[in-house]
Write a protein that binds this DNA or RNA. Structure first.
Length: 435
RNA sequence: GCGGCUAUAGUUCAGCGGCAGAACGCCUGACUGUGGCUCAGGAUGUCGUGGGUUCGAUCCCCACUAGCCGCCCCA
C-alpha cells in the first residue's frame, strides 16, 4: 500500500461566515449584556423567532422587489417526508422584523390592546459579497414596538422613545462620534409620487452627472441622492425633496418626532436624502452612522412600518423598529479600544513536581468555589516555565512546592509589584481577591 | 452578481525564473525553586489550491478559492 502523498485539504468556514474566538467573544457578550440591560429599562421583553421561515413571509413582508428578497436569500425546497406532506419553500431569515411581526399575529399578541415591545439578538443570513462589516451570517440586535393603533402604536412619541433608547445604548457601550440621521418617507402613496417627481426633475440635468448617476437615474432614482461625487453635489442640492411630496399628516408626525428628540436632548440631523429602506418602511426612517466602517457606515438602521402586519395577513398593527449590525458595533468598539487589555486570571497555581498535582487541583477547586478565576499549571513544568506562563495569564502566582505542601503556607508573588510573600492556605482566598 | 487589489513562518510583512528571509512571537541555555530586562543559540514553511509555460516556478500565464476595496444594496 502506498501512502497518499497529498494531504487532505482542511475544511474551512464557508465564505462570508467566520468563527468568533476569545477574547473577542467577551466583547460580544458585553454588547449583548449591555443591550439587554438597556432594553429592560424601557420595559422590552425578549423574543426568539425561528432562524428559518416560510419563504412567503419575506416575499410578502420585506418585498418581492427588494434586493434582499430577489437575490440575497438562502432559500431551499424542504423535502416532503410523507405522501400527505408537500414540499415547502423555506428561507434562512435575512432580517428579523418580518418574523417578529408574524409571531405577534400568530400569537395574537396585540389583541390584549397593549403595545408589544420586543427585542431580539441573533444571526441573520444574506448571500451578499462579503466585505469588512458585511458577512453572509451576521448578527443583529433589534427591537420592535408594535400594536393596535388604540395602544398608541402610531404616536410619534414611540419613534422618539426608540431613538432616545438607541442613543442611550450607544452611549453606554462607549461608542463615540455617532451621527443620527432621520427622515420621513411618508405613506406608501407618497413614495411613488416622489419617485415620479424626481425622475422628471432629473431628466434635464442627468446628462451632466457622473456615469453612476446616469445609470441610477434609470434603475433607481432614489440612489442618485446618495451619490458621493463632489461634482454632482450642486445638482443634487437642486433636486426636489421627498418632504415636498409628503401629506400634511406625515409632516406633522415627523415634526413631533423632532420636537420630542429636541426635548430630551438627543442630537440628530434631518437628512432629506435618507430615502432608502425596505419596502415596508413608512414615515420615519433613521440610521445611526459611524466613520471607520468603510462603505458600510451604517451602524444601525430602522424605521416605521405601519402596513407590514396587514401585508402578511394580520390586523392593522403599526410599528417601529430597528436593527443594529452587531458585527459593525464590534468593529467600531475594537477600533476605539486602543489597548484591549486582556484581563488576567486572579491566580496561577504552580505545583512543583507531579506529586503536587492532586493537591493543586484541590486548592484550585477551593479558590474557584470562592469565585476566583484560577489557572492551574502542571507539576511537570520547571518553575521558570511556570513563571513565564503565569506572567502572561494571571495577576499572581501561587507556588505549591514540597515545603509549601508540608507547612500549608504558600509562596505568592504579585506580578505587578514584584512583591513576594508567604500566605497561609486559609488566607489565600482573601489574599488573591482583586482589590 | 460586476470591477480592482491581495494571498510567503504562529503574527505582521520583505523577497527572487535556480539553497526560503526579517521583525515580533515560540523553544533551549546563561540562571538546580523565580517571570518581566539582557545576552547566546535553535526551530519555524506543502510560498492559498489546481493546471500550464520552462531544464527548473514561490516568482511568469490561466482557472479556482478566500480576504480586502469599490459598485449594487444593506445592519
Amino acid at each position: 500500500m502506498s501512502q497518499t502523498l497529498k494531504a487532505i485539504q482542511p475544511l474551512k468556514a464557508v465564505r462570508g461566515t467566520r468563527d468568533l474566538l476569545p477574547p473577542e467573544t467577551e466583547l460580544w457578550n458585553h454588547i449583548d449584556a449591555t443591550a439587554r440591560r438597556v432594553f429592560a429599562r424601557y420595559n422590552f421583553g425578549e423574543i426568539r423567532t425561528p432562524i428559518f421561515e416560510d419563504t412567503q413571509l419575506f416575499a410578502r413582508g420585506v418585498g418581492e422587489e427588494t434586493d434582499i428578497v430577489s437575490k440575497e436569500m438562502y432559500t431551499w425546497e424542504d423535502k416532503a417526508r410523507a405522501q400527505s406532506e408537500k414540499a415547502q419553500s423555506l428561507t434562512l431569515r435575512p432580517e428579523n422584523t418580518a418574523g417578529v411581526v408574524r409571531a405577534c399575529i400568530e400569537h395574537k399578541l396585540g389583541e390584549q390592546g397593549l403595545l408589544q415591545k420586543l427585542y431580539y439578538i441573533g444571526p441573520q443570513f444574506r448571500r451578499e459579497r462579503p466585505q469588512k462589516g458585511r458577512y453572509r451570517q451576521f448578527f443583529q440586535i433589534g427591537a420592535e414596538v408594535i400594536g393596535p393603533p388604540s395602544a398608541g402604536s402610531e404616536s410619534p412619541l414611540r419613534d422618539a422613545e426608540v431613538l432616545e433608547m438607541l442613543a442611550t445604548l450607544l452611549d453606554e457601550l462607549g461608542i463615540t462620534g455617532w451621527r443620527l440621521l432621520i427622515n420621513s418617507v411618508g405613506t406608501p402613496q407618497d413614495r411613488p409620487r416622489y419617485i415620479a417627481t424626481l425622475r422628471s426633475a432629473l431628466q434635464p440635468v442627468v446628462g451632466q452627472m457622473c456615469a453612476d448617476c446616469q445609470r441610477r437615474a434609470e434603475t433607481n432614482p432614489l440612489r442618485v441622492l446618495d451619490c458621493k461625487h463632489p461634482e454632482d453635489q450642486p445638482i443634487i442640492a437642486t433636486l426636489p425633496r421627498i418632504w415636498d411630496s409628503l401629506d400634511e399628516e406625515s409632516r406633522a408626525h415627523f415634526e413631533q418626532v423632532c420636537e420630542a428628540l429636541d426635548a430630551c436632548g438627543v442630537p440628530y440631523e434631518h437628512d432629506h436624502r435618507l430615502v432608502r429602506g425596505l419596502d415596508y418602511y413608512t414615515r420615519t426612517t433613521f440610521e445611526f452612522q459611524h466613520g471607520g466602517l468603510g462603505a458600510q457606515n451604517a451602524l444601525l438602521g430602522g424605521g416605521r412600518y405601519d402596513g407590514l402586519s396587514e401585508a402578511i395577513g394580520g390586523p392593522r398593527a403599526p410599528g417601529i423598529g430597528f436593527a443594529i449590525g452587531e458585527d459593525r458595533l464590534v468593529l467600531t468598539l475594537q477600533a476605539q479600544a486602543e489597548t484591549a487589555r486582556a484581563d488576567r486570571a486572579d491566580a496561577y497555581i504552580a505545583p512543583m513536581g507531579e506529586a503536587r498535582n492532586a493537591m493543586a487541583l484541590g486548592l484550585a477547586r477551593e479558590l474557584r468555589a470562592a469565585g476566583l478565576r484560577v489557572e492551574l499549571g502542571d507539576g511537570s513544568f520547571r518553575l521558570k516555565k511556570s513563571f513565564e506562563i503565569a506572567d502572561k495569564l494571571a495577576r499572581k502566582i501561587a507556588i505549591l512546592g514540597e515545603d509549601e505542601a508540608a507547612s500549608r503556607i504558600l509562596t505568592v508573588k504579585d506580578f505587578a509589584t514584584g512583591e513576594q510573600m508567604k500566605v497561609p492556605w486559609a488566607e489565600l482566598k482573601a489574599h488573591l481577591l482583586p482589590h
